[in-house]
Design a protein around this nucleic acid. Sequence first.
DNA 1: GCCAACGTTGGC
DNA 2: GCCAACGTTGGC
Length: 155
Amino acid sequence: MPAFWLFKSEPDEFGIDALAASPRGQAPWDGIRNYQARNYLRDEVAEGDLVFIYHSACATPGVAGTAKVTSSPYPDPSQFDENSPYFDVKATADNPKWFAVDIKFTARFPRLVSAKELRKVPELTNMTLFRQGRLSVQPVSTVEWETIMAIASGK
DNA sequence: GCCAACGTTGGC
DNA sequence: GCCAACGTTGGC
């Protein structure tokens, strides 16, 4: 039984379109530098899980589409790369601090489902998205997943 | 661009 | 280990 997640990104950096345009629709989800998000990514996200791609810090924040996790968690290579903005001097190969997974594009919603709209839906008022800001990897319940999928498909 | 919320850093 | 200062996120 796959678990459900919501991954936040800024569409100017790496949004649903960039994912869809990646080779085979697949790309690493890296650069996560928040401990709580890291813990989810390292300890709970698993191959086969399903993910909402959420666009933040943009004109209309909201859920843009879906992706599937196609790898187990692995040490984020950018933490070792001095030229990367995600370089972390304290991370070592023996003791990596940050993790990534690969994800594969599955769908772009016919329209972006805005956070404003979702906030009004009774089934979603307790979503982590609305209870805790600044968390770029967060769990989504089965009910929340199905509710958002139904809204995205026009029901 | 503003600014509230909140995570992180660093002096003590 | 406290907590003030600082930096970042993210909606508006």
